[in-house]
Simulated assay, not measured.
Amino acid sequence: MRYKMFYNNEKFKKIKVTNRFKSRNEALKQRQIYVYCPPELEKTIGQIVEDYSFDMVVNDYTITDFNKKVVCHYQASDLTKEQRHYLVVATELGAWVEPLVSYLDSRLGYTEVKLLHSSFFLHQKAFSILSTKRTQLAKRSIDIISAFLLSLVAFPIGLITALFIKFESPGPVFYKQKRTGQYNVEFEVIKFRSMRNDAEKSGAQWAAKNDARVTKVGNIIRKTRIDELPQIINIFKGEMSIVGPRPEREVFIDELEKEIPYYRFRHAVKPGVTGLAQVSYPYGASINDAIWKHKYDLFYIKHHSAYLDIKILFKTVKVVLFGMGR
């Protein structure tokens, strides 16, 4: 292995640290990063390279000057003792060293699901939303306050919406549907009806853009998210959060988890009325769209904070006002 050329000689000792990164932000802007992983995973990393605007140099153990270099590792526990020591030396000599998944999280703003493996989920303390009681209480407080304030606006809008729904098409004003929530427990999500009353007479179907089953009023309330307002009730009941992954139907989850690694992990938290995926990714109803939304949902769970919740809420207001996304 090329690494052994340097392991026992004096070259590392002669290298001086002269130019470290001044901030994480600087490390996130590098056009080239160095990635170290088990040899059998090089192809996987190589496929990821095609997706991004920066280069990844994989398993180059000839590097001795680590000034202003980003060094990322992937499944480092499967590296040899010598290879792991190389990464330690890189840290000592000024490199910016961190796991590849966390580096890409920060650089891309979403979690690359192609790189996920079980150890990512086994460090529960890394997910403050799952392990810290104070964080959970703060989130519940934001939910209750947001739901109360939103209900003041939602009540008059809801009355007008209900009248228009009744005038346009026969059927109930509200639409209840079983969705899978936290810990895989099903609950009934409440929405204003936006489709014809017989929309699923042929069985469950993916909603699609320009769906013929959607009524004229339904089209408006879906674009502006008004159809989601009755979910304030789900928030007060503790079944949903104001921000989180959108709840999905079990029939679709069974299909999606065959294609998307760790898809059910989104159920570790309460589903949300709005979420990072909804304000970051345009409307879509394909498997590929579901994969992209899952990337944002996992990022949200991993990096949750009160600040991120508030940021998503403000973005949601922008979506509602300008009718963007879904």
Rank of each mutant, 00 (worst) to 15 (best):
V101E: 09
T80L: 08
T111F: 01
S77L: 15
A90W: 12
H73L: 01
W96A: 08
Y74A: 04
V101G: 05
S106L: 11
G94P: 04
I63C: 11
R84E: 13
V113L: 13
T91L: 14
E112S: 04
F66R: 04
H85F: 09
E82P: 05
L100Q: 03
Y61M: 03
A90D: 10
D65Y: 11
H117K: 11
Y110W: 10
L87N: 13
Q75W: 05
L79F: 01
I63W: 09
K68I: 11
T91D: 13
S102C: 08
T111H: 00
A76I: 15
T91P: 04
K68M: 15
H85C: 02
T62L: 14
Y103R: 01
E92D: 11
Q75D: 06
A90E: 11
Y110R: 11
N67G: 14
R107W: 07
R84W: 05
L93W: 03
V70W: 08
Q83T: 06
D60G: 14
S119G: 13
K81C: 05
T80A: 10
V71W: 04
G94N: 03
L104R: 02
K81W: 06
G94A: 07
S118K: 09
I63A: 08
V89L: 15
A95C: 06
T91A: 14
Y86M: 10
L116K: 08
T62E: 15
K68N: 14
G94K: 07
L104S: 09
H85L: 07
K114F: 14
G94I: 05
G109L: 12
W96P: 02
L108A: 05
D60P: 13
K69E: 05
H85R: 08
D65R: 05
L115W: 01
H85E: 05
K81Y: 08
L115T: 00
S77Q: 15
Y74T: 00
D105F: 07
V88R: 12
L104Q: 02
V89D: 14
T62W: 09
K114A: 15
R84C: 12
V113H: 03
L100I: 01
Y103Q: 02
V71K: 05
E82W: 03
H73W: 01
T91K: 15
N67S: 15
V97H: 05
A90K: 12
L100E: 00
S102G: 07
S77P: 10
G109H: 07
L79S: 03
P99S: 03
V101W: 00
N67M: 12
L108R: 00
G109F: 10
A95M: 10
A76T: 01
V113T: 13
S106N: 12
T91I: 09
T80E: 11
E98Q: 11
L115P: 06
S102L: 12
H117M: 12
L93T: 01
S106V: 05
L79G: 01
K68V: 08
W96Q: 03
S106T: 01
R84S: 10
E82T: 04
T64Y: 04
L116H: 08
H73Y: 13
W96M: 06
D78S: 13
L116G: 09
Y86H: 12
L100R: 01
